[in-house]
Design a protein around this nucleic acid. Structure first.
Lengths: 98, 98
DNA sequence: GAGACTGGTTTGCATTGCAAACCTTACTAT
DNA sequence: ATAGTAAGGTTTGCAATGCAAACCAGTCTC
C-alpha cells in the first residue's frame, strides 16, 4: 500500500460541506451557507477564504438594500476539484475492508 | 445539510492507511508498516502513538534476536472504528453530487 | 445618541502533521 | 579499546490548521 492521493483542502469536512452545498447551486450567500452548513460564522468565513485562495470559490461582496451580502460560487476549478475528490474518496472506500 | 459525523482520527490519510494495513493481519511490526505505508519513521511512530492513545492499536515492544521490534495490532475497538469509519465515508460519498 | 442587531472578519490559542535530529543498542573495522 | 556505521525507533521544532470568542462597521430602534 502507499499513500493515496487526496485533496487535503476538500478532505476537511467543513470545506467539503461548503463545496457540496455550492455545487448544487449557481451561487449562494453567506447566510445561506451559515444556516445549511451548521458552521460558526468565523469558521465559515475562514474556510471560504481558504477555498477562495485555492481558486475553488469566487466571492463577491455586494449589498442587499443596505446590508452587506457575500455571494459565493464554486468556480469551474472548484467543481472539477469536487468531482475529483469524490472519485478519490470512492477509491479509498473501495480499498477499505469488506 | 449539516456536518456529518466522522472519526477525525481515521480521517487522517496516514492513520487510515495504518489501520487498513493492520486490519488485514493479526499483527505487524514497525518495519512492515514503514515499508507498506510509505510514511517516514517519525510520522509512523507518532501516528501509531495516537492510535494507541485512542485504544485503536495495541503496541508491544519486544526483540527479534537482539534487535528491538515493535509489534502492532488493531484492537477490537480499532477494528470496529475502522468499519464505522468506512460506513461514514460511504455515506459521505453517497451524499456527493453525481 | 445609546443600545442592539446584521453580516461578517480577525485574533488567540491549542492541536496537528511532518521530517530532521536525536537516542540506544548492536555490530564491524582498526 | 575505540571509532564508525547501521537498525529501530522516539523526540523536537516548527509551520500550518481548526475553532470560536472577540471584534468591527454599518444600520435600525428607542
Amino acid at each position: 500500500m502507499t499513500q493515496p492521493p487526496i485533496d487535503r483542502l476538500l478532505h476537511e469536512p467543513a470545506r467539503l460541506t461548503i463545496a457540496t452545498l455550492l455545487y448544487a447551486v449557481e451561487s449562494a450567500d453567506f447566510l445561506f451557507l451559515l444556516r445549511e452548513s451548521g458552521l460558526s460564522k468565523g469558521n465559515l468565513s475562514s474556510h471560504l477564504s481558504r477555498l477562495e485562495a485555492a481558486g475553488y470559490v469566487a466571492i463577491e461582496k455586494t449589498y442587499r438594500g443596505k446590508t452587506p451580502m457575500t455571494i459565493c460560487r464554486l468556480t469551474m476549478e472548484g467543481r472539477e476539484a469536487l468531482r475529483r475528490y469524490r472519485d478519490q474518496l470512492k477509491r479509498v472506500v473501495a480499498a477499505l475492508p469488506d
